[in-house]
Design a protein around this nucleic acid. Structure first.
Length: 267
DNA sequence: CCGGATGTTCACCT
DNA sequence: GAGGTGAACATCCG
């Protein structure tokens, strides 16, 4: 997916539909709907107004209010998860044209969700690999605090005391929400901390510093244009070298994800 | 042809 | 229970 930063771009673009009334919500098939309730998604939200668009980690949430006669939904939320290749298109234009696959590969066949509005316009999800999903009333409580504003105490609680590798904890959305594989490596590179360091081993001052690096890195890469714009990313390939000290980058699978780091300055 | 890819979930081990 | 690994999902790309 898009990582937290890309979903934040989606959120900003989706603000354009706040106040509009949903005419219909189309989903490619039932497999793309993550079932958390038995209620039919389209039936529930049809005729409802978008009251707000929010983001928590990599989850985009639409708050929908149905106040008309004969409508029973009251207020519901609709969650959008984008998997690795999901992109949001609002009123025909995409907030980002580059993801794992380029916009040149956009095909009608990749359209998985379309929300159309009475006032006109639409919100579409294009997702070739269809690892994303739509969900009625997603469990936002299952997500940790958002990475953009992660505080030292929040990170301290997220890391816990176990001996699991630091990177695994940072990628765990229940602990911290929004960190993806690319930005995780970038954060650890900037902080000078090894991804395989036992999470519970960090000193309190290291945790405070790391939380600041997380916030700064999100702000920086947000301004640059995405999770793929990090300093380490350019060298994130076999044989790449550290942009800081020229050390040959390590490559290994950590937490199930391909991980690059510099053995010289990341300890 | 093969391996890997910005994510999540589940089965199966230790 | 905690934590790890690998597979699965479906498609594209080098």
């Amino acid at each position: 997916m898009p990582e937290g930063i890309e979903v934040e771009y989606y959120r900003r673009a989706a603000e354009a539909v706040v106040g509009r009334v949903i005419e219909n919500l189309w989903v490619v098939d039932d497999a793309y709907v993550r079932a958390s309730t038995a209620r039919g998604l389209a039936e529930v939200v049809r005729g409802g107004a978008v009251a707000a668009v929010r983001r928590r980690g990599k989850l985009l949430v639409l708050d929908v209010v149905c106040s008309g006669p004969g409508q029973d939904c009251g207020s519901v939320s609709v969650g959008f998860r984008f998997g690795m290749t999901g992109r949001l298109v609002v009123d025909g234009s995409a907030p980002i044209d580059r993801l794992l696959y380029s916009a040149a590969n956009d095909q009608p066949a990749h359209r998985r969700v379309e929300v159309s509005f009475v006032e006109g316009g639409s919100m579409e999800v294009l997702d070739p690999r269809r690892l994303g999903a739509v969900e009625l009333e997603p469990d936002e409580g299952a997500l940790g605090p958002d990475a953009y504003s992660l505080s030292g105490p929040e990170l301290s609680a997220a890391l816990g005391r176990g001996s699991g590798p630091l990177k695994s904890r940072l990628l765990d959305q229940a602990r911290v929400a929004g960190i993806g594989n690319l930005i995780c490596d970038e954060v650890l590179f900037r902080a000078g901390v090894s991804p395989v360091r036992p999470a519970g081993e960090l000193e309190p001052n290291e945790v405070i510093d790391l939380a600041a690096v997380v916030r700064d890195t999100f702000a920086d890469l947000d301004a640059r244009g995405g999770a793929h714009t990090g300093d380490l990313q350019a060298e994130r390939q076999r044989g790449g070298v550290c942009p800081l000290d020229g050390g040959v980058l390590m490559r290994a699978s950590v937490g199930g994800r391909t991980t690059y780091w510099c053995p010289v300055h990341q300890r």
